[in-house]
Each structure stands twice: as C-alpha cells, then as structure tokens.
Design a protein around this nucleic acid. Sequence first.
DNA 1: TTGAAAGCGCTACCAA
DNA 2: TTGGTAGCGCTTTCAA
Lengths: 348, 348
Amino acid sequence: MPYVMVQIPKTPAPASIAPRSVPTSADVARLAGVSRATVSYVLNNTSAVRISEPTRRRVHEAAKELGYVPHAAARSLRAGHSRMVLMPAPAIPVGPLYGQFLHDLQRALSRLDYTVVQHGSVGLRGDEAARAWAELRPVAVLVPHSGLGPQGVAVLKRSGARAVVTLGSDCVEGAHALLMDHEAVGHCAGTHLRDRGRRRIGVVVPAEPGLDSFSGPRLAGVRRAVHGTHATVTELPLAYEEESAARLAVRWRELGLDAVFAFNDEYAMLLMRALQDQGVRIPEETAVIGADDLMLGRLLRPRLSTVHLELPSGRELAELVDRMVRDPGAPPERRTVLGATVVHRESS
Amino acid sequence: MPYVMVQIPKTPAPASIAPRSVPTSADVARLAGVSRATVSYVLNNTSAVRISEPTRRRVHEAAKELGYVPHAAARSLRAGHSRMVLMPAPAIPVGPLYGQFLHDLQRALSRLDYTVVQHGSVGLRGDEAARAWAELRPVAVLVPHSGLGPQGVAVLKRSGARAVVTLGSDCVEGAHALLMDHEAVGHCAGTHLRDRGRRRIGVVVPAEPGLDSFSGPRLAGVRRAVHGTHATVTELPLAYEEESAARLAVRWRELGLDAVFAFNDEYAMLLMRALQDQGVRIPEETAVIGADDLMLGRLLRPRLSTVHLELPSGRELAELVDRMVRDPGAPPERRTVLGATVVHRESS
DNA sequence: TTGAAAGCGCTACCAA
DNA sequence: TTGGTAGCGCTTTCAA
C-alpha cells in the first residue's frame, strides 16, 4: 500500500494543466519511458555505462521536446564542487588593454571547461565581498589588485575554493599572486627620463579614487630610478578634468620641471594639451611620457612616448589557474607577470 | 538497530582528523548544540519564529568560529528560485560611458538584493549561450545588443527566468526590450550636419567586428536625416588603425565630402588626425562630428563636436527589472532609453 | 521555543 | 543495459 503512494506524482496535475513548470530530468525520464539514472547517463555521456542507441535517441528527443536544461546548482551540489571561476567585476571602467586581457582569459578558461563569472560586488568591501563570493562555492577566485585581506582568502579557501589568485601589486597571505609590478612601470619611465638628461621630474598622481594601487607603485618606481642621482621627483595630483589640468599648467613654469611621467596615456594627453595651450614646448621644455601604449598616443603631436605594458597571455594564465586547481596543496606561488618597455616617440 | 546506524556520522573521523572539509549548517548546529532548523532560523532572522537570545548568540558564535558561509546553490535549490541577475560579460572592451552605466546598474540591483553576475560566455553563439545561462537558473537576464534569438528567450523563460530584457537596437519576440536607439544617434548627427549646410556627408563604419549593431543603425539614422534633401550619404569603412585612416585621408579630396559623422569620438580623433596631416582644414573644408561625448573630444583642436548619449540611470533600470521580476505575467515592454543630443563645439 | 524530517534536482553506487 | 535510491546543504512545515 505505501508502495502505491510513492508512485503517485507529487503534483496532482500533469504537464498539460500546469504548463509552466521548469522541466527536470524526471520529466525527461517520464517522457522517454526510462529512469532518471538513464537520462543522466545519456545526457552526460557517462563512459562507464553503455546505453543502447535507441534509448539514447529517445532520451535526447524527450530532452529536446521539453527544452530541458540541467540545473547547475543541483549538479554541483551533488558533485560537491563546481567548475566556476569567479572574478569580481571591475569597479572602474577598464581600458582596452586590460579588457582584451580579461576577454582572452575568459575564452581560455572556457576552453578548459570552466565557467567564468564576474560577480558584481559593488558596495561590498573586503571580507563582505569574500563572503558573497564564497556563497557561490567557486573552484577558483581571481581578484584584481587586492582589496582582499588574508581573512578573505581564508574564508574562500574554507568554503572550498581550490585556488585563490590575486592580480595586483602585492601579495596576500595564503593566496597565489600574479604580481602586476607597477613599480617597474614607473621605474622604466623614470630611467628613460633620467637617461635622456632630465633632472626635475614630475609624476602625475590621479585624484580619482580606485587608481591608488597603480599610481602609488608607479610613483615609487620613478623615485627608485633616480635614487642616487641629483634628479628630483615631484608628485603632481591631477583630476581627469580640463580645469584641473589647466590649473596645473598655469603654474607649470614656476614648478621648474623638465619632464613628467603622466601616469598613463590618457592623463598624458590631458596634461599635454593643457601645457601646449600654455605655450610650453614639448619635448624641448618638458618631456612627457605616458603608459599603456594606447592608439591615442600615436595620434598626438608630438607623438607620445609611452611605457608599453605586456600582460600575460590569457591562455598561459588559464593554464596556470588550472594547474593550481588540480593541485590545491601546492604552496602559494608568486609570479611577476607584467612586462614594461619604453616606446620612445617624440614627446620625450 | 537500524536506528542506531542512522545516528552514526557518515564521516568516520571527526573534525579534528578531517580538518579541511567545508562547514555546513549541520556543523554549526552541532557546535552550538541546537538543530539545523534553529541555525537556519537564526542566521536568516526568520521573523515567523522567535528564538531565545542565548540560543541566537550561541549559533552566531558557532557560525563565526567555523567560518560558516551558506551554500547559495543549496539554498536556491531548496527555495526553487534564485535572486541572480545574469548578464553576458561584454565581448569587446567597453567605453567609460557604458562602463559607468553597468556599474551603476549593478549597484542599484545589489541594493534591491539581487546578485549580479556577468557570465563569460565567449565563444558560445546564440542559443548555446542561452543554454549556458539557463543552467544557472537566473531570475532575470539582461542581454546587451541582441545576439539572442526568440529560441534563446524561450529557453531562458522555460528554465525559470522571470524577466528577459534585451538592451539594444531591436526587439526579440517574448523579451522585454530597452531600445538603445542608435538610429536616433545617427539622425541627430545627420540633422546637425544638414542644418549647417553640409550636403555631401560621409559616415564612418568601423571595420572591427562586433560594432555592426551600433554602426548599422547610426548609418541608417543619417540617411533618414537627409532623406528628401539633395544631400548624399557615403559609407566609409575604417579600421581603428593609423594606416587605415591614412589611406582614407589620402583620397579624401577626391571623395569630395564636406562633412563626416565618424561613428564615435575615438574614430573621429583617428580620422581627424589623418585629415589634418593631409592638410584638410576642419571644419572649413570638412566638418567632423563624433559621438559619446568623451573627455577626449574636448582636448582635440579644433574641439570635437559630438553626440552626447544619455543612458538611463542604473537605479531606474534596476527598478524596472525588479518590477518585471515581480510581475512575470506582464506583456513584453518596449521602451526607448537612449537620449541623443548634439554638443556643438568647433569641428562642425 | 526547538527539533524531526521531507524534499528541491541531480549523479553515482549497487542490484537486477 | 537499466532502475532504484541515497544523499549533496538548505529551508520550512508540522509536532512536540
């Protein structure tokens, strides 16, 4: 008797009356006249089990007819792990360089059968964000320029993340680190200016928040480049607005600088325009160098010297992440992945 | 006897021996000396149930000590729905304008207690992508500039998405549509040039793939603006490279154009530079207008005229999505959400 | 105020 | 070759 009860479908109405419920593998099984297990075997091509060709076909047809899509949450709950690689969505609009990098990385991870997801964790700071990410039980987490403390790393690992990787200027306890060495970018620019005989070097520091983790190391790099010489380094706060640049340009001659590293090509263009409007001759009076090697710089007159950044290839990085996931016991790895080379054009 | 077996923990070793397993609510319950139900009540502040203060504290302490983080998949599996809003991650690097919009939208949705996720579905086209998204059972899906057919919409809806919204130039059967009317952008630019007496108008069409869904409508808009006048419209393919621009500039005079709508400010800068290098006087010989109203344009000489785009506020759009989720039965809504106004500067 | 237990959709083990 | 079924972690009803 109780046996009979088990056979009664839980929903009193069949599909024809309740048309809009999400089809499950049980529905597919029912329609194909097989068990849920068989459905699972067929749809996942389980190699350990042989299913006859007619049955396979019936299952596939039933799945198609119902528009069946497996439920990722149920699957990973059962499996005990997911193939999700999580990254926080960038908080600030991202340039073409980094955008391309992200795109390649996603593509490469997809090829390795990971699902890449950017989590829009705006407004959550530090370990709150880590908790929100951990709820999704990603198998790996990639975090650009820290904002993640050792606590956060611990939360993620304890919740099953097999690899936590920071992309940024500094390392975090317990996480792998792909060091984007922006100090080297500044050093590169500073060395270039120094070698070309410049002695009073300005360094633009963006006033916009969120850029600190880049601007700080870049400034430090310039400082290191001129260390032990007679050259000086002057910090130049600058907001990304015409007025801010104009204010700086007006008092340019009294600053007495003969060179400036403008943080990146965009700030360089902003400043260069303001200086030119003030009649400052570039590069004679003041040498200007940017960074990022954007198309933009080639279009300026004089053509903008810049620091070309070499990000790691997406494929390379994806394989690294994959290796870390496969061997979660390995000690945290630190690897420098940002190449910086000067592209000398006309402005320096 | 079988009763006793049920009580035996499935893992023979207690936490001290198996240190690295992910803590569950059962672990919290055990440590706090309460049932899993109580843990759930406490951690979710279930208002229908009163839990004594000492118990609450014990549960919170246990959760903290274990570093417990709830399992989103299990939760939404049980609940039968998630609060996930899914968007495909942009395939092409996204400009500051759209980037800011995305950011605001994410923030606003977060405030409404949705989890926003960008799915890195590169390399999947059309309905494959829709299937991949559907596996995550998002409650809503926002898809920029189509790439999603009626099939895809159906898949998503059948898998439980309560709102499917396209942001783009055209509508898709069954989905809500936020029409980014790029035709109006072109119309705006075309009208401006026409009103300023220009009669032979060029329109830059980027050679880069992925921009078609913008460039097509923009071109059409210019055509409509001059319809019924004696003005002509000439399509100008242009790749985002100096050489391509130079090639176009060399044969500029033989094209005999007196104005150009350059797709956006970046292509405008590229072309303007090439034209100036050829000695073409702007705006006397040729008027140039861009679009997007980037900072960039203000820095050019002559200052670049442009079409300023007004995207909907993130908050507004988030509330719209929320309303659609709450009332999934409502008929598909079509709404135009892109304001376009000319900013007249010096180049036109 | 708290606990026992069912069940969300899926996969994998074992039995038939 | 196929089916029955336990159980992943969680919430929620019903009982105590």
